[in-house]
Design a protein around this nucleic acid. Structure first.
Lengths: 226, 226
DNA sequence: ACCTGAACACCGTTCAAGT
DNA sequence: ACCTGAACACCGTTCAAGT
């Protein structure tokens, strides 16, 4: 009977790696990176903290699993019938939006280099780069450049979302930053001050894609020399 | 006399923000990100942990200050007489090498977006982009693309250095990763497997610069359309 | 003004004990 | 096999008390 009661409390489902990762994602989304705690997780799953260690080795492994789950779900974009350029944009935007929705993955992607979540993105980018007609010797460089740019933006955006709280308005953030830039030392930060105004009415996604296009242009410029 | 003894113990210098940051950098370099502890720092400075809080608000602020100090020192590269392209390469390489020497800044740069360390790099990149002749409306995009790529690579490299320990050989790491890639599922990771061989004899710095050149090509291709 | 160090409120992780 | 929850060894941070 006691066992029956416990089952009921946790909705009949027994503890499993899947349920743990799912709960971790929920915790990370609602409470941020600092919110993921074995104690909080245990409470959500109606167990003790020790139970989680039966299914998961580490907090690091748990974070990786959570990140992987989110990234994998965005990598399903259908790219059939699109040009390689369009496919790259779609892929990149998928990662961008995923980080926007789950800022914590941005931070973790940057620290978990060639493990599965990142590798997945690399693979799909690479296929499109190959479709672009890039010679074998340049494939790695081209795919890496795209990947690293995407991860770089992701890290920055994750930090933005973290630093200003999840409720903060994008335009509000941009205005704040823009104001701060305009107050910088005119000599030491001449360039930054000059572009501060452009920041104010900015679409992050558009800007992100403009960077992707810049790299794509660089890649294809090599293919058809003037 | 007691005061005199204490002074002697800490080499006569009183506690100061500067000394704290300096000690923090030393701790981070020798013991990694996990090694920076207020207790360990206090021991190094021959005080109690509370004393540090008089000069520094936060652990986060301390990390920022440490990162800033390291980045600022690399931003002094003399770019006079160089072409903008050369200057961008020199700047980028400066950041790359700094992260190689202090892997912990890679992680922190990625999470500290528009604060001073990153802004410094952005400013200097921007000046060179402007020197390239990029029109005002595209300045921000071009400088951002370069910056984000650099930060992306930095984050990955920092993670590499962290995951494999500071003593690990670069070529050893590459061999390990390359082997792992070749063992991947042939269908799911067709592209990654195909380029795994290229990874084996790879120069990280050369590869990094190749990515920079790709973006530079993209930037200048816009200037002189075919 | 600046430093001290005990104390508080947390962590991740382990492990004997249970079922 | 799987779960429990107390316990261990740490953290960052605060704060009354000292000089």
């Amino acid at each position: 009977m006691v066992t029956g009661e416990r089952r009921a409390r946790r909705r009949g489902e027994p503890l499993s790696r899947e349920r743990i990762v799912e709960a971790a994602i929920g915790l990370l989304d609602s409470a941020g990176e600092g919110g993921l705690t074995f104690r909080a997780l245990a409470e959500r799953l109606v167990t003790g903290p020790g139970a989680i260690y039966w299914h998961v080795t580490d907090k690091d492994e748990l974070l990786s699993a959570a990140t992987d789950a989110v990234v994998a779900s965005t990598m399903t974009t259908d790219t059939a019938g699109a040009t390689p350029q369009e496919a790259v944009r779609a892929l990149a935007l998928g990662v961008f939006d995923a980080i926007d929705a789950h800022p914590w993955i941005g931070t973790h992607l940057a620290r978990d280099p060639w493990r599965s979540p990142v590798l997945r993105v690399f693979e799909h980018l690479g296929r499109q780069v190959r479709a672009l007609g890039v010679p074998d010797t340049d494939l790695f460089t081209a795919a890496s450049a795209l990947l690293n740019y995407i991860l770089g933006v992701g890290g920055q955006n994750a930090a933005d979302g973290r630093g200003y709280g999840p409720d903060a308005n994008r335009t509000e953030i941009l205005t704040t930053v823009s104001d701060a830039w305009e107050a910088l030392d005119p000599e030491e930060y001449a360039f930054t001050r000059a572009v501060a105004g452009q920041l104010r009415d900015h679409d992050d996604r558009v800007e992100f894609l403009a960077g992707i296009d810049l790299i794509l242009t660089g890649i294809t410029a090599r293919l058809n020399p003037a």
